[in-house]
Write a protein that binds this DNA or RNA. Structure first.
Lengths: 208, 208, 208, 208
DNA sequence: AATGAATGAGAGTTCATTCAT
DNA sequence: CATGAATGAACTCTCATTCAT
């Protein structure tokens, strides 16, 4: 369930990866501008640098592109996040590092994040769960960190609180993406991060 | 800028309102199920109980329907919220009441909220600002309340903090809509509200 | 099972009949010339005298046109045949009349018959049985006549013989359509009929 | 006119024959299942065991495959028939043998026969005559046999009758192929042959 | 001689919008 | 005011054919 293979007529896996990367890049750009439904497969092919025929050598249906895009975005977010944090030794400081890293990633990938949020519901009943799964894994990262901190008595939260807060963290990162119009003129990214972190820690640290 | 008139060929304003209400009701139902793009104007007309020809007596383009829908949703949320709170005499208690009211509205209108979030970017460059304006007004409600509380020295927050927190409140309400899959099995609405309120107050109350 | 309704978006049944007749007429002409697969829906619409959009108001899929064509052809053959014969009072003479009528119909509708024979296998699994049923009904007409004659002791054939001969009659009529290249330069229709009838009667009359 | 060369880029004739045989075998199988138009060149190549590129080394256009298939089928029918009969010494008995052989061949090659009948009209104006010629040759076999028998006064038929009956024989063999649905549940092949032969002989033998 | 990735014309189908009734 | 038949631009997807390797 962790991956859903999108079949390709082309056998050479290297090439498949290359072409799909071109495709995804072009698609993200177009989806950002006009959304999934307003973007035509021909435009995607053109933006990717090949013909419509070639496009369909690498996917079966237009929806596959959306799936690949969502998949790629999450993978990238995931990867960047994992790189930034050390899951083995969790401290309050490393939690803060993780938050900083997460907010930075969300800033860098603003457009991609918006695309996913606005278009994922266009995925079919079959593909959607795979994308939601990815999203869940993101929440999971924070759940794990918080759980460890609780175990080590650095925080005092029950299971349900951990989950709620983790969701909240993830959502607050997304907020930076889809509320730029309301936030960007007030805060720089750095200020926003600092403020958010302070609020989050206020929420979780035991009141003394 | 507060309203954008959608022109109608029909002059009788009462009738226009009636037909548009039918239309909006049908459209929301369909948009919930299949999204804006997958819903056809024919389907909307049918669901509304009149013919496609009649539909086009009351709007110019399909997008007008989306605008009317978004407009109606915000109006309803707004109205319910205003009804629940007393903006004249703000206390920490009435802030809490407002939060409770807000979360309840977001719960009742889950589907509508999702529709707006996922489809509003399908609005044209001209219509979008009007919808964003509505959204801003929602944030405004909380900004005002918080500002008053600050003025009355019940809270100690600067202007930017007020805005950030107001955005956060609004987003957290929306979170209940578009994260049901992750939250509903953990919390009842009441528990969720209680938890959220505690966290919000923790965030804003001065540490003693 | 006797009819398979092809759904139409247009409600007015008279209009549906009229438009479909135009459509069928155009389609038969084109199918004759280039076959079902080589004929485009656009060509059919044009030949029928309306736009591609209108075409699709009266059918759901291209295949529906083929079904309507096959259906119409059989109906016409059937009708002409029923008109020519009196099923109540069967004599050897009226059997001969029926044969003459049948061969005439097959001559008049040569092209249509060819279309059906060469294209019916393009029908879907669902539609094909309905067309085969029609064909069977044609065979049935002769089975009934022969059966009556046997009952009245005018002929001496068992059940299986009756069926085989009926099939043979039907096939021989079709032969005139799809073997014109080999037969037309030898026989006029009248000669062909006369010869065929003589052969058929030789085959079924008891040897004296 | 007896053969129409389909040009090949490959010079080695042995190889050409081998590859085309593979191709024909695969194509017949696929055409049986889904018809000429629904079968793609890719599928044919795959079924034949080589790549699409290789396929086009041995033909110029998809239609060539259909021509080769029709050609091959007739060749096979022809060959089997010639093997079964002795054209030099024709008697009423050997005519019967020929009929038996012919019906057997038609039974063995049912699917192939259907393919030819339903797809040959997809051949181009240039290729069709070559295929019809083959068909004519089949009729010719019976014309020759009957003519000899007439010459030897074993039968009394004029030229036109001979031709009609020959056509009829050929058609009746085909009938066994494309009317299985109506005949197979009534007759075994052996019964069918016996019945048909009796009818044919009744038709041609002088009434005593 | 064999491969298979690339191509793009062209097919079927949909659907927002119009307009005569 | 209401209707719904008519329109055709535009979309997704297919597949015969080519050609560099």
């Amino acid at each position: 369930m962790n991956k859903r293979e999108v079949p390709s007529l082309v056998k050479d896996e290297k090439l498949v990866k290359k072409r799909r990367d071109q495709m995804i890049k072009g698609a993200v750009k177009l989806f950002k501008e006009k959304g999934f439904h307003r973007t035509t497969t021909r435009e995607i092919a053109k933006e990717a640098g090949f013909s419509i025929g070639t496009l369909y050598e690498y996917i079966r249906k237009k929806e596959d592109i959306l799936y690949l895009v969502c998949d790629a975005i999450y993978d990238e977010v995931h990867e960047k996040l994992e790189k930034a944090i050390d899951r083995d030794k969790v401290t309050l400081e490393s939690l803060e590092d993780a938050l900083v890293a997460y907010f930075h990633v969300m800033d860098e990938m603003q457009d991609e994040v918006m695309v996913m949020y606005q278009e994922s519901k266009s995925l079919s009943k079959e593909a959607l769960p795979y994308v939601l799964k990815k999203e869940e894994e993101m929440v999971e990262i924070f759940i794990e960190m918080l759980s460890q901190l609780v175990q080590e008595k650095q925080l005092d939260l029950d299971e349900k609180e951990i989950q709620l807060i983790s969701h909240q963290i993830v959502v607050q990162g997304q907020m930076w993406s889809f509320r730029r119009w309301g936030l960007k003129h007030l805060y720089t990214l750095e200020e926003f991060i600092e403020k958010q972190n302070r609020l989050i820690f206020k929420g979780i640290l035991p009141e003394q």
